[in-house]
Write a protein that binds this DNA or RNA. Structure first.
Length: 260
DNA sequence: ATGGTTGTTAAACAA
């Protein structure tokens, strides 16, 4: 079972890339972020023609998440308890017996800002929600654009990014509290080449110079992590004409594998 | 080089 995440930075602009990538990679689940469209504009028919189901939670201009899947999504949620948030950043569903939570984590703009405080609060509430999900679902995956680089090795220039947004200690601690619930960063379950990132700023030729951060993550419950056979970053879409600033991250799970 | 680019939506805002 192949599960992927991709911040597409406008599904209107990136639909062709997404459909091409689905055709090439054939994932069972693709979690999208920043689709930037209202639900009435969602290109459902295009996904159906490609052989996929889709659920989505969108809004005008900003944010917006979607789950594209071979199998239908059950028990869908678009909000969580104790978090009043008009921004469409959360989409949960059960697909093929796996509980999936697609997140577009608040960016936070700048350390110390109002948006930064909101990011930490938002992460607290989402962490509490995930604690409940983990009690109900042994097979659980939370994935998306976390807007946090977990460690300095996930940052092209740790000195330049020291205590800056996406890398600050409080953000990393919030991510660690989430992971401490019993979630593994699938990418780090395996040996990986150094300097592998999932996002590069459009500015200053960031991709060409590999000035990136690894902020797009796939976190799996203990039972799911045991089934994870591979996790990688697919840089191919970032090399295309008019790319998203993010590229897909993919994890493969052997769902038939018996937990030992 | 506190710059640079992209997307949405109408000059600014978010990332």
């Amino acid at each position: 079972m192949k599960i992927a995440t991709w911040n597409v930075n406008s599904l209107n602009v990136r639909l062709g890339h997404v459909l091409d990538w689905l055709g090439a990679e054939q994932p069972e689940v693709l979690a999208l972020q920043e689709i930037k469209m209202t639900d009435d504009r969602f290109p459902l028919e295009a996904f159906h023609e490609a052989g996929y189901e889709a659920i989505f939670s969108g809004q005008k201009t900003y944010n917006g998440v979607a789950l594209i899947s071979r199998a239908p999504a059950r028990e869908v949620i678009r909000d969580i308890a104790d978090l009043e948030d008009p921004a469409r950043r959360i989409l949960g569903a059960t697909i093929d017996g796996v509980r999936i939570l697609d997140l577009y984590v608040v960016n936070g703009q700048e350390v110390g800002s109002e948006k930064y405080a909101h990011k930490l609060h938002w992460l607290d509430k989402v962490t509490a929600h995930i604690g409940g999900e983990l009690q109900q679902h042994e097979c659980f995956v939370v994935l998306g654009d976390f807007n946090i680089a977990p460690e300095d090795r996930d940052v092209h220039d740790p000195a330049a990014w020291h205590e800056r947004i996406l890398c600050s200690t409080p953000e990393r601690e919030a991510l660690n509290r989430l992971r401490a619930l019993g979630l593994e960063d699938c990418y780090r379950l395996f040996d990986q080449d150094p300097e592998q990132y999932s996002w590069w700023d459009y500015r200053a030729a960031g991709f060409r110079r590999n000035l990136g951060l690894r902020i797009d993550l796939i976190l799996a419950s203990t039972a799911m992590a045991r089934k994870c056979t591979r996790c990688w970053i697919d840089k191919a879409p970032r090399k295309l004409e008019r790319p998203s600033d993010h590229t897909p991250v993919v994890a493969e799970f052997d769902v038939a594998r018996t937990p030992s």
